[in-house]
Structure formats: C-alpha cells, structure tokens
Design a protein around this nucleic acid. Sequence first.
DNA 1: CGTTTAATTGAAAGCAGTCAAACTATGTGG
DNA 2: CCACATAGTTTGACTGCTTTCAATTAAACG
Lengths: 251, 251
Amino acid sequence: MLDMPTHPLTSMISRLADHTALSGDDFAALAGLPHSVRLYEQGSHLVRAGKAFDECSVLISGFAFSYKITSQGQRQIVSIHHPGDIVGFRQINVGTADCDVQTLTRCEVATVRQSSLRDLAYNRTAIGNALIANTLIDASICREWMMNIGRRDARTRVAHLLCEFAARLDAQGAAPGQPYKLPMSQVQIGDALGLTAVHVNRTIKGLVKDGLVTQDHRSIAFPAWNILKVQADFNTGYLHLGQQAAASDDS
Amino acid sequence: MLDMPTHPLTSMISRLADHTALSGDDFAALAGLPHSVRLYEQGSHLVRAGKAFDECSVLISGFAFSYKITSQGQRQIVSIHHPGDIVGFRQINVGTADCDVQTLTRCEVATVRQSSLRDLAYNRTAIGNALIANTLIDASICREWMMNIGRRDARTRVAHLLCEFAARLDAQGAAPGQPYKLPMSQVQIGDALGLTAVHVNRTIKGLVKDGLVTQDHRSIAFPAWNILKVQADFNTGYLHLGQQAAASDDS
DNA sequence: CGTTTAATTGAAAGCAGTCAAACTATGTGG
DNA sequence: CCACATAGTTTGACTGCTTTCAATTAAACG
C-alpha cells in the first residue's frame, strides 16, 4: 500500500489513511511534511502541561502515555500512545497543553510544526478530514476509558486494558496470539485504571489463576482470548482500527 | 458583541468565537448555516449509538448528556451538553455514533447537515480552526472527567461536578453566586461520576452539613464558593471558557 | 388524591485501599 | 564474578469507602 516503507512517518500516514481515502498527492504531501526525528529515552517527557507548543510529535516507534495530576498528587493516565499516534495535536488552537506526556519505552519521535500540519489540512480536504477523524477517534477511546474506570470492576477493567493493548498491537501487525511485550509497570496500569498497584497485581494474578493470562518476564499472553474478550467487555469498535485489523478481530 | 441576538445559533456562534478570531464574513456565514429548529421533550434521544447520521445537533436551550452502557447494563454518562454545544459532530468522518445522547430537560435543538458545517470549515479557515478548537475542548473536559472519576474520592468528585456546572452556567451569563437550577437527578450525577445514587445523596448531604452547599427544591447554591472550589480540586482551565467567563473566575 | 418518580435513611457486606515487608529482576561498580 | 543498589513485583493483615439491599419520606403530576 505504501511505497515508502522506511519513511519515518509511515505509520502515521497509514493510520490517517485508515478512515479517509487519500490520493497519491495526499500521500506525497504527507511524506513531504518537514520534520526532525529524535530519540527519547524511557521516562523522558515529550510534553509538559502548561507549556505552549507550536510543534506536535509523531510517535515513530515505542510507547508513551499522557497523564494529569490531582492537587493531592494522584496521577491519572488518560491515554496510551502507540506508534503512528500524533501526540500534542491537542493543544493546537487551544494554547497550552493540559497533560504531561512521558515515554513508556525508548521512543523515536518525529517533530512536526503544527502550522505545517494545519496548512496541509486546509490545502487538502482529505488530509483535513483524516486529521479530524484521528482526533475524534482519540475522543472515542477517551470515552470508553471513562466507562471502564467509572463502571467496571477491577477484574474487568484490567482485562479491558490488556485487550486494548493486544488489539492495537495486532492492528500494527503483531502476530495475534503471540506473547505481547507489555511496556507498562503495574503502577502505571493502576494509574491508567484508577486502581492501586497492589490491587492490579492481585487482579492479574487472578486472571492468571483462571487461565486467561500467562506471564513470562515482561511478556504477557492470552491463551483464551475469546473468553477474555467477553469477560473484559471488550469490543474493538471504539478503537476504530483499520480494515485489516478489523478482519482479525473475530479470530 | 453579536448583532443577531435572537438568532437560534447565537450561543453556538459566540462559543466558536471564544477561541478564534472570526471576521464579519465568518459570523455571517455561520448565521447563514441552513438549519431547522426542533423541540425535544425531557428524556428524549437526540442520537442513538450505532446509528449513522449525516446531521449534527446544536443545543440552543436546555441540557443534555451523552452516555454509554456496559454489557452488564451499567450506565456511564460521558459528557453534559450545555446551550451552544455542538452534539454529534463526533461521528462525522468516523461513521456511526458511539454514544446515546439524551435530553436532561426540554431542549430546543437546531439540526445542521454535517456537510454544510464541513464545507464552511474548509472554505473559511477561521471557522475550521474554531471547530477544531471546540472539539479539542470537548476532549480536554473528557480527560478532566477521567481524572475526576479515576483518582478522586466521592466528596471531591461530587463537588467538582457541581463546580463545573456553576462555572459553565456563569460563562453563559448566569449571575455568579445566585442559586443554580441543577437539571440532573442524583441517579444521573452518580452515573456521571461512577458512583451510586445512594452515595451521591450522602455525599451531597455531607457538603450541605459542612456549609458548602445549600439546597432548595431543584436549586442549589454555594455559600462558600472559594472553599468549595479548593475542596473540589476545581480549576476552570480545562473548560477553556471564553474571556468574560475567565474574568469572573477568581471572584 | 392517588400515583409515580426522586430523595433520604439505616444496616450490613464487600471490593479495593493502605501499610508494611519480603521477594525478584536488573544493572552497576569494584 | 560478586556485593550492592534500585525498581518492580508479590504477599499478608487490616481498614474503610462505597455498594447493596430495603424501606421510608418527600415531591411532582394528572
């Protein structure tokens, strides 16, 4: 599909093409987007809340997360970023960032000037539509997380997060059914789900005991994916994954 | 500021102008947006999840909310819509709606074809920017809610919701300090906060006992707004209210 | 004035949090 | 290669916030 397999923005571009038909010129325009690639170590910040930015970051490889802190110092992780995600498009037009963004792993990040992206959006309707779709999908995921945190018990919540990770990795071409490398600590999982790390630990153990999850060092696998999916109340719809991913959904 | 005080879309237009400088032509274009106004009774649905729509709704008067339902029938309210909100812009470009939207009160709603709005966005950069800003603000509120639900205790959570309501009503011109008519039942507040109605009731009673809230039929007032704001960990920033509203913030 | 919906209250149970300690893995420097 | 430091995981005991269940009261409505 893409004629530039090694281009840094490949994963972003194919993501944008997931829901909007892009012409050859659109692809070329996106590939020609001025950008600079940088490597961030694990645990470094891509965005600081309150800071004004005129750039946004495209995650090329690795994982990151956005979080907010309450006045009492409690952390809430509000989203997980996968390769291809556009991070920091948020604060465009609104001024300052309302979240910190930190890397979960070592990350390759392409920095794009927001004005470049915006110009592209206005000069090429298809790209504009694709960017809007991308933003709306972020919001859809946010709402699903809200339901997860607000209305599901710990077991379902944890299972749902694991399923989401698996589904998104599969959509990026991971072999379904194979063990996944989960880049989050249990503290981070807890902060994403509104739980304590201790309870996350007990909950995962429970899933292991029931044969729904197997662990091996930093890898995790799902020997009973279909059962897990049901218990997690997980349905890929809210992720709005691309075509190829949706196909492997009901495997 | 607006030269069309009785125009149905006034509140939407002034909202869009909050964060983007719009020219006279922009205002005229927005005011000329083809639309039809309809009245919805309390409890009626504006959007049904799963349905494809090519229209979106602009709330002229009244309040509404979006919600999702877990497989076990638990409801999570994911946002509250105030006059001027554009409801259903969400599913544009993404296909079907992922939320139901139901009215909290009797509502006047203007229906706009999504293609009209989109054309406007592409023909007028300022309007496009304003719509994007609007969408990003929705997402910002969503993230704050996530933190509220995931990381704050019941008392803080309830207080935060009450503060948000007050701040948004003030931004629409309600007299600050005056009693507010709260259009939500305690069941609905619970479903918005990930709590049970019973516990919402006890929590509000607690706030009343401590002199932070007074109730009178369907009205509610905040005799100690500044203390409440602190206890609620409430900071208007995430709402990205307009200029005039931000001014009354620290009163 | 009965009927319905929402608010209120009490008692008991349970899920998840807190605190503290032990264990494991990983990495570093001597 | 081992001692040590650090970060993350695991476990236990106890506490408590919130839920659940059930019943009562108040308000809204025709």
